[in-house]
Nucleic acid binder design. Structure first.
Length: 565
RNA sequence: GCGCCCGUAGCUCAGUCAGGAUAGAGCAUCUGACUUCUAAUCAGGCGGUCGGAGGUUCGAAUCCUCCCGGGCGCACCA
């Protein structure tokens, strides 16, 4: 339930009116019984000429009633028209095209909508849809063995924004970063560290192993290690040192990026508590783990995976899967009902086996939902910047942020569907013009703030309190660009809900651009200050609502809403 | 070979999950609009076999089948 007015609520209202009309008509035997159960839609038509909300009910019922859709629509209209006329929020119902029924909002509704936004303030667009269910979003979870790269920057933006969205629609959303501080990769990092330390102390060339970490940052870390601990210590200790340093860097960087994790969950915690062994025990007990060729296998094929998976290697060490499975079990044991993992594109083969593992443990694998974030290509001067680590030309997340800033990075990363590969245009992201979507949107906000500063009372003026009655707004507003803007404001709640439910933050980004566009059009067409006092007051109220929603929408993306630019 | 993602205007992409009316936006290009609240803006023109072929439907970019192109996976790596 929501306590504010929005276009979504009107959709329900219209749906109800149509069902009532259908029931009346079947009672009068004008339509065959049961038609009121038909699934029809009430949606915003693409073309605004077709009204504010349109229903396909007559097209759906046409063949069932053995009538042409337009005939059904005609009969429905006869019943609906008087109802619509009595309705405060609706103006007209019309039949159009092949049999669509087009509804138009009454001015009264648009005025009350604005008042409702003014009354709800930052809460406008929030829902209780998630029913306080606990959802855990795990993202980035990069190995602490090297700098964060672009695809992780994308995941970070995505995960953080999903948390914000899920909270907005009524979930209790938590964010976690799983730190692989205990696996084989960390050992390799230690060996690479040792090589670099020896190199620095002149103890030999110490060539980095084939599967080690040749990056320059390891040399830096080795230097730091020497400065703090001298040449003492084995590879293990050096590895731990490097991991802690890198982890600290990641934490700092993500914080600068506006991404807060509720918890950094270390694999070593899982291991030291014996969670992996517990999982093995449960799996054996349930008959889904078996020994073969010296290894312990998960019977993943029982649960739809392509092949069985190794949990414990023949040398006795664990695969990545086992502790990670223990971690996911731990999430469920902590009462999270919905687990969302954001993974890179190279991990999609992993989804099946994790779900299979959860099923094998007696949980519902379906409670795990994976968002695969696709690759990021960097473009500069129209050319792709090669991402070769070997050639040393790859750009880290940190470098990207230095280049384009947090706002542009976050916005660009969620402008596209996570499942689409992203071409990140660095030149565009740096551009301070309308071509840059981030600036276009932020400029709309700054422009409104500028008007408020000019307005009587200055920036602190309480515009909202000047208008109390819908009539005041109805009298002051009327220009098509004003009405279009109000309607768009009324779309905000459903955009938030859909973006959260379908885990598609790009909807919010695209809404922001639409809203900014509608505002700029209005701004060009209509003068706000210095008009008739009633008109000025109403327009100020309108742009204040617009400012409120722009700010809230940008906030959902973690992007700043500047007051001046 | 199997699995996942992508294919829509010259370029970058919305729209596909939830089928609807004449397929949208930005960029590029061309033409216009600042004595007035920020021109970091707005208006208009040009531009399409929605990768292809079948099928389902009153109606398909959207659903189903097959095919073609591009990317990525298919480890006792993570």
């Amino acid at each position: 339930m929501i306590d504010y007015l929005c276009n979504w609520a009107l959709r329900d209202r219209i749906k109800g009116l149509i069902v009532d009309a259908l029931l009346d008509m079947t009672r009068e035997e004008r339509l065959p019984a049961g038609v009121e159960d038909a699934s029809f839609t009430v949606e915003k038509p693409r073309d605004p000429e077709h009204g504010d909300l349109a229903s396909n009910v007559a097209l759906v019922l046409g063949s069932r009633c053995k009538m042409s859709p337009r005939e059904v629509a005609g009969q429905l209209k006869d019943v609906l028209e008087p109802v619509v006329r009595r309705d405060d929020y609706l103006e007209t119902v019309e039949i159009a095209g092949p049999g669509f029924m087009n509804f138009r909002f009454a001015e009264r509704y648009l005025s009350e909508l604005l008042l409702s936004i003014g009354a709800s303030r930052q809460g406008y667009g929030d829902w209780d849809w998630g029913e306080e269910k606990k959802v855990l979003v795990e993202f980035v979870s990069a190995n602490p063995t090297g700098p964060l790269v672009l695809v992780q920057a994308r995941s970070a933006a995505l995960g953080d924004i999903l948390c914000r969205l899920l909270s907005a629609v009524g979930y209790r959303a938590s964010s976690e970063y799983y730190v692989n501080d205990a696996g084989r990769q960390v050992e390799k990092l230690g060996v690479s560290m040792q090589c670099r330390v020896r190199e620095l102390t002149g103890e030999g060339e110490g060539s980095i192993p084939e599967d080690g970490y040749p990056g320059e940052y390891v040399r830096d870390l080795a230097r730091e290690y020497l400065a703090e601990h001298g040449p003492e210590g084995d590879a293990r200790r050096m590895g731990e040192f490097a991991v802690e340093r890198l982890l600290q860097q990641h934490q700092d960087l993500l914080q600068r990026y506006g991404v807060e994790f509720d918890r950094w969950y270390r694999e070593s915690e899982i291991r030291s508590r014996g969670e992996a062994e517990k999982v093995l025990e449960i799996l054996r007990h349930r008959g889904y783990a078996y020994d073969e060729e010296g290894a312990v296998w998960l019977r993943a094929t029982e649960f739809g995976d392509d092949k069985d998976r190794v949990l414990v290697k023949s040398d006795g060490s664990y695969t990545y899967l086992l502790p990670d499975l223990a971690y996911h079990r731990d999430k469920l044991e902590r009462g999270f009902e919905w687990l969302i993992d954001i993974l890179g594109p190279d991990h999609h083969g992993y989804v099946q086996r994790m779900r299979a593992g959860l099923d094998a443990l007696g949980y519902d694998g379906e409670s795990l939902e994976v968002v695969l974030s696709q690759w990021v290509r960097l473009l500069q001067g129209g050319e792709e910047i090669s991402m070769s680590k070997r050639a040393g030309t790859f750009i880290t997340m940190e470098e990207l942020l230095e280049e384009v800033g947090v706002d542009a990075a976050r916005f660009f990363f969620v402008m596209r569907s996570p499942s689409s590969p992203l071409d990140f245009d660095m030149d565009l992201a740096r551009e301070q013009s309308s071509e840059n979507p981030v600036y276009y949107a932020q400029y709309a906000h700054a422009r409104i703030c500028s008007v408020m500063r000019e307005a009587d009372g200055g920036e602190a003026a309480d515009i909202m309190s000047r208008i109390r009655e819908p009539e005041q707004l109805a009298a002051g507003l009327g220009h098509p660009s004003e009405l279009a803007l109000v309607r768009l404001l009324g779309d905000f709640p459903e955009e938030v809900l859909w973006a959260a439910r379908s885990l598609e933050p790009q909807r919010v980004a695209s809404y922001i651009l639409d809203l900014a566009g509608a505002f700029h059009v209005f701004y060009t067409r209509c003068r706000i200050l210095g008009e008739d006092p009633g008109v000025s007051a109403a327009r100020l109220y309108l742009v204040d609502c617009c400012r409120l929603i722009l700010a809230r929408a940008l906030d959902l993306l973690g992007v700043a809403a500047p007051r001046r630019m």
